[in-house]
Design a protein around this nucleic acid. Structure first.
Lengths: 247, 247
DNA sequence: TTATTATTATCTCATTATGGGACAATAATA
DNA sequence: TATTATTGTCCCATAATGAGATAATAATAA
C-alpha cells in the first residue's frame, strides 16, 4: 500500500490553517472565442474540482487565494475578486473528502480535521489564457481548461460556485471594466467584442460596440495588426490602466 | 467581583461554533430623511459595534445572520445580503476582545478561543425602521440608530465594514431595486426619492425621478394620502414584489 | 497589374432615453 | 374666496442608442 507522502504530510498540518474555512477559486480565461475555467482532475475519481485550499493562520484570505492561484497557474499579480461565501450547513464536503482520502488509500480517522463542515470563500480570477501554465497539485492528475458552457461533472458544490462566479462576472463586466484582464496586452476591437459577447451571452453590432468602448476613454489605439488575412488590417488597442487588483 | 453569568456561560461554549469565523451585520434603516445604522454600545467601553456573532456548527451562515438580526431587531423575514468577507491577517479583533473581557472583569486565559484571529462575513440588512425594536445583548448597554454620515467611534474594523456595506448598497440600489425594503408598505413618491437621494448622495428632479420609477413597472398606485399639509395630496404607492430575500 | 473578397473604420439617420423647465390641480390656511 | 405649498403631468431640447450604409484596405485570384 503506497504512502502518499505529501498528503500524509498535509494531514498532520491541522494547526497551520484556520479550521473549517476554505478558499475556492474560479479561474476564468478566454481562448478561441470561448470563456474557460481551469479545473483539476482528482486522482482516481471521475470528477473535477476548482482549485482551492485553506487559509494559513498568519495569512490574509486574499493572500491565500493569490497563493493558490500562483500554485496552479504560475502567475503572480492576478486580477482577483471575492464574490460569495458558501456556508450552508449541508454543503456536501464531507462525503467528497472521504472519497478523495479513500482513493489515496490513506487511513482516515472519523474526526480528521478535513472531514469537518467547511465554509468556503469563493474568488474569481481573470487571467491571460496565453500566459497560464496549468499545474496539477498532489491530489490531482490533471489541470485543464474547460468551456464554461460544457463543464464536466464537478465535486462538492463546485458547479454552483462556478455558476455564481459567472453571474458576478457578468454583473461586474460593465461596472468595473474587468474584461480586459482576460485579454493579452494588446487586442483588436473584434476580440474585445467577442469576449463581451461570450461572457454576456449576447450579440452586439460592430459599429455601436466600438463607439461604446472608445467613448469610455480607457482604450489606446496602438498600431495596425497585419493578420495575413485578405482584408483590411484591424487596429490593436491597449487598456490604459494597470491589471492587478485584489479585493 | 461580580460574575457575569451569560458571558461566562458563553465562553465555555467554544465547541458550539465554527472557530475563528464570525458574522457582522450592517443593519440599515431610513428615518427623517436619513440613512441609519443600528449599533451596540459595548458595556464600560466608549466604543460602539455592529451586531455580530458566531456561526453554530449546524447552522448555515445566512441562518446565523438571520438569527443575529432577529435577536437585535425582533424582526423575521428581513432582507439580507452578504457583501464582503473581512479576513486580513492583521484584523484588530484580539485587542478589542481583550478589552471587552477586561471591562467585564472576566478572567481571560491567553489561549481563549475568542481571542484567536477571526475572519468575518459581512452582511447588510434593510429593514423598515418603524418596525424595529432595538435590543442590546449581554455585552452591550444600548442599541441605537446612528446616521451613517455621523457614526460614533467604532470597535474592531467596523468602520471599514460599514463603509463597504454602504458602497455595496449604493451599487445594488438600481440593479436589484432593494431600496423598497427600507420603506413602509406604502410610501409616497417623495419618500422614495428622498431615500434614493440619501443613499446615493445625489439629487434628482421630481418629474424625471417619478418617470423612471413608474417605468420600472414595479410600483402600484394605491390611494391618495391626505397629510394635513396645505397642498395637493400625494398618491401612495406599493411595491409589487415580496420583501424577504436571503443570499 | 488589376479585379475580387472579406473585413474594418466611419458616417448618417431614426428611435429612445434623459435633463430641465413650465403649468394646471388641489388640500389646507388666511 | 384668495393664498400657499406641493403634486401630477406635459412639453421640448439634448444625449444616448439602435440600425443600416459606404468607403478603405490587405491579401489573393485573375
Amino acid at each position: 500500500m503506497p504512502l502518499i507522502n505529501e498528503l500524509d504530510d498535509f494531514i498532520t498540518k491541522k494547526d497551520l490553517f484556520i479550521p473549517q474555512l476554505s478558499v475556492d477559486c474560479v479561474i476564468f480565461g478566454f481562448h478561441n472565442q470561448q470563456l474557460k475555467v481551469l479545473l483539476l482532475k482528482l486522482k482516481n475519481l471521475s470528477v473535477w474540482a476548482l482549485p482551492g485550499g485553506y487559509v494559513r493562520q498568519n495569512e490574509g484570505i486574499d493572500d491565500a487565494a493569490l497563493r493558490i492561484l500562483e500554485e496552479r497557474t504560475g502567475l503572480t499579480a492576478i486580477y482577483l475578486e471575492q464574490f460569495h461565501v458558501f456556508g450552508a450547513a449541508e454543503r456536501p464536503t464531507k462525503a467528497f473528502i472521504r472519497e478523495i482520502m479513500a482513493s489515496h488509500q490513506t487511513e482516515i480517522p472519523e474526526d480528521l480535521w478535513v472531514l469537518q463542515r467547511y465554509v468556503s470563500i469563493g474568488y474569481y480570477a481573470l487571467v491571460d489564457f496565453s500566459k497560464v501554465n496549468p499545474m496539477p497539485d498532489y491530489l490531482s492528475e490533471a489541470c485543464k481548461w474547460f468551456e464554461v458552457k460544457q463543464l464536466p461533472s464537478l465535486a462538492f458544490d463546485h458547479q454552483e460556485i462556478t455558476q455564481k462566479a459567472l453571474e458576478t462576472l457578468q454583473l461586474m463586466l460593465d461596472y468595473k471594466l474587468v474584461g480586459f484582464n482576460l485579454l493579452a496586452d494588446t487586442f483588436t476591437m473584434n476580440e474585445l467584442q467577442k469576449l463581451y459577447e461570450t461572457i454576456l451571452g449576447t450579440v452586439f453590432r460592430r459599429n455601436n460596440f466600438q463607439r461604446k468602448m472608445l467613448n469610455l476613454g480607457i482604450l489606446e489605439r496602438v498600431e495596425k495588426l497585419y493578420t495575413g488575412a485578405a482584408n483590411k488590417a484591424p487596429y490593436l488597442y491597449r487598456f490604459r490602466e494597470k491589471k492587478d487588483k485584489v479585493g
